[in-house]
């Protein structure tokens, strides 16, 4: 499954309601079926930490850190990639605490 962020939000990804819809309607159902999810950030110039958190934190909580093998991030600008790294890092720290 491929999710194109630009198609829903344009060049700046900040709308958490859209993130929640993508997560609940597309990402989690696809992961539950064992499918690979490609989140495509082509033409997206910026994203907030809150948006990325709303998009991927719950899949990480539900499926554990191995979900990062199934959930791939395509065509990320450097600042978007850095925010994704920050969110996946702090999620792993917290998930360690939960175990």
């Amino acid at each position: 499954m491929r999710i194109r962020i630009f198609d829903k939000l344009g060049a700046f990804a900040g709308n958490k309601d859209v993130a929640m819809t993508m997560r609940e309607k597309a990402i989690i159902p696809a992961l539950e079926k064992g499918e690979e999810v490609i989140i495509d950030f082509e033409n997206v110039e910026g994203a907030t930490q809150s948006f990325i958190h709303a998009l991927i934190s719950d899949p990480m909580r539900k499926f554990g850190i191995d979900v990062l093998d199934k959930m791939k991030f395509q065509s990320c600008k450097p600042n978007v990639a850095k925010i994704i790294r920050i969110v996946t890092s702090y999620m792993q720290a917290g998930l360690g605490d939960d175990e």
């Binding site: 958490k16 809150s50 958190h53 709303a54």
Partner: peptide, 12 residues
């Protein structure tokens, strides 16, 4: 919780 909720991390 340290990882927040699905919608909130408490970092904004």
């Amino acid at each position: 919780k340290p990882t927040g909720t699905a919608q909130n991390a408490g970092a904004g």
